[in-house]
Design a protein around this nucleic acid. Sequence first.
DNA 1: CCTAGTTTCTAGTCAATGTCTAGTTCGAGG
DNA 2: CCTCGAACTAGACATTGACTAGAAACTAGG
Lengths: 214, 214
Amino acid sequence: MTTHRPFHHGNLRAVLLDQAERTLREGGVDALSLRELARKAGVSHGAPRSHFVDRQALLDALAERGFDRLADEVEAAIAADGADYKERLRAIATSYVHFAVTDAALLDLMFTAKNGDAPGLRAASQRLFAAVGDLIDRGTETGELEHHDAHRLQMLFAAIMQGIASLVSSRRISAQDGDALIDDAISLLVREQEQEPDDIGRSGSGERPRRLAD
Amino acid sequence: MTTHRPFHHGNLRAVLLDQAERTLREGGVDALSLRELARKAGVSHGAPRSHFVDRQALLDALAERGFDRLADEVEAAIAADGADYKERLRAIATSYVHFAVTDAALLDLMFTAKNGDAPGLRAASQRLFAAVGDLIDRGTETGELEHHDAHRLQMLFAAIMQGIASLVSSRRISAQDGDALIDDAISLLVREQEQEPDDIGRSGSGERPRRLAD
DNA sequence: CCTAGTTTCTAGTCAATGTCTAGTTCGAGG
DNA sequence: CCTCGAACTAGACATTGACTAGAAACTAGG
C-alpha cells in the first residue's frame, strides 16, 4: 500500500474544496477554517495557501463551484425532453429551491454582497443566468411567455427563483410553501394555452402580448 | 463639560450597535470585531460582553434592527395616502430595494441561513412580513389583486421583492434594472383597471379570479 | 444614610486563527 | 544531469473571541 504520505499531495485543492463543502453544509461559514481543513487533509497548516491565497479565495472558489453545480442542474433540467414548457420551468425552479434547502450556507456565499470581484465567480454565475435566460427566450419565441422585453423577463424569473430560494433558505417559509410559490409564479408568467391549436402557431411574430399589462 | 469618562458608559449598547452598523456598511461583516468596536467606544475589550454574549448575538441584534428599520419604512409607505394602490406597492418595493443597495451587508445578515433562532429577530422579521401582508390583503379585498390564496400572494410578493433585492445587493443586476423589475412584477400582479367603473365594485365577493391560472 | 445585591465595566489570560516568511521537497523541461 | 518553479513544511506574529476574577457604580430596602 502506498499509504505513506507523499510530500506532494497532488490533489490537495480538490480535497480541500470537497471537505470545505461538507463542512459548510454541516456547520455554516463560521465553521470553515483553513487550518482545520489542512488538518483533515493531513497537510501542514500553511499548505492551503498554495491553492488559496486567502480565506476569502477559498470562499470564492466554493461559490464558483456552487454556481457551476447549479448551472449543471439547470441545464440538465432544460435539456430534459418529453416535458412541456411549463414543466420544464418548474423543473428548473424546483432544482433551484432544492439547492437552496440542502446548501443554504453555500447559496448565501454565492449571493453575498462582498463578492462579485473574483473573475471566475462572475463567469460561473453568468453561466447560470445564461442557461435560465435561454429557456426564457425559447418561451418568448414560441409565444408561451409574454414578452415585453425578453431580457427583463429573464431577470424577473431569476429574481423570483432567487427570492423563493432565499426565503426558504433562511427558513422564513417552508419548503412546501416554496413549491407552491413556484407553481404560482409560473402560472403567473406562462400564458395559459387554452387557446385554439392554430392560435399557437400564430404567435412568434411581434404581436402585442395578451394578458400582461401594456 | 462632562467629558470625563464615567465608569458606566450608560449608553454602550446603542453606541456599539450604531458603530457596528456603520462599520458593516463600510467594510462588510468581516470588518466587524467586538474588540475594535470597544476601542472606538472607548471601553475595555470585555465591555461589549455585558450587552452581547456572543459575536453572533451582536449580528443578530443588527439583523433585528435592520428588520425594524425596514418595517418602519414599509409601514410608512403603506400609510402614505394620496397614492393609488399600484403606487403604494411600488413605494414598498422601491424602499425595499433601496435598503438592499445602501445596506447590502445588513440585508445579508438579515437573510442569512444561520439565524432564525434568536426570538427577537423572528419577531422583527414577522413584523415586516405582516406589514407587507396587510397591504396585499387590502389589495385582494378591493379586488385590485387576483386572489387564489391571499397568504400565498403575500409570500409571492415578499419573495419577488427579496429576489430583486438579492440580485441588486449582490450586484448581479443594476439598481435601475431593479426598478424596472419592480414595475414589471407589479404590472404582473396587479389587475389592470381598464375595466368599466362598475366592474370594480363588483369584485370583492368570492368569485373566481380572472386571469390567474386556477 | 447605609448597606446588600446586581449590573456594568476593567484587566488579565488562553486557545485558535489568518497571514507572513524562510526553507525544504519534489517533479518537469532544457 | 541540472535548474527552476510549484507544492509543501515549520516557525512566528498579531488579532480575535471567549472566559475569569474582581472593581466600580447604580439600585433598592431598611
